[in-house]
Amino acid sequence: MSKIPFLRIGPPAIPAFFWAVPLVVVLLAVPFICEALGQPFYLRVASRILIFALAASSLNLVLGFGGMVSLGHAAFVGIGSYVVAVLAWHLSNEVPVLTWPIVIEGTTNAALAWPAAIGASALAAFVVGAISLRTTGLYFIMITLAFAQMIYYYAVSLQQYGGDDGMKMRGRSVLPGLDLANRTTFYYLVLVALLLCIAFLFCLARSRFGLVIRGIRQNETRMRALGIEPYPYQLTCFTISGAMAGFAGVLMANLDTFVSPSDLSMARSDELVAMILLGGVGSLWGPPLGAAFYILAQLGLGNLTTHWPLAFGPALIIVVLFARRGLVGIFGERQR
């Protein structure tokens, strides 16, 4: 695992971009293609893929890049979704979110609700990270999983917000100047969000901070010997990743106009890890590729039979056992 590089540092960064240009062109054309095929449903699938790509990329920041195997990332995605939905619920039911010590009203304004949601996810990631990062290895895996389950059960216990069944939102958030209810507009918003986040990850990986994080993954003892205390760097990395996951959650709630505890279940966390593993751990384009592959395969098998997990589970196992570097390995991001 430690042999797989995150972004290679140094001049020849061409392979990452070699595939990026035609890919972005295709992605830009997706709404037109769906329109031409008369299949607006496909645009919804495409938006879903992009949002999962964002969620998986955020997990890849801690998992592939930082070497911290977190098994509870869906919780941070779900918190983002829930904050958006809960704020919208309070607006439509005309009940303030908080009356003491200050009055907070519900809102569907994206300019307020989205930062609040991302902030909540970042805060949750900070707290979970602060406790979990005191441990390493197996303990870290188990603790992130346990905290995610805690947040899951908490969401289930929220009877006011639908409990186990989740809740429907009346509509998408309102963003001044953009009509988010329009599916094409929403798709482009998601696409821009994903590309910006990938660009951010690209820069982060090459920054001093990125070097330190990579160094900690490769050899923690050596980083300590260099006078760098890993904990604050890892916690920062974990918090950034949580915030980005929260953003994915915001978009997910807006796409479906529905949230439920299954958005932050253990199975969802496992799915995100599976996407990364399918795509290629620690590579920039791996998680988005893995997300696309995962969702399309699920959809394709689901069309064939209702018992698709009987085929999908074993297929996942075979890919993981035999295609050791993921899809990116096939698409030519070469390993040094």
Partner: peptide
Amino acid sequence: RGYLEQVIVSFGAVMFLDEL
């Protein structure tokens, strides 16, 4: 192999057994 692979292989097994 790494923990990641173990997690996902067992996740695939869970999917299969649940559906079975």
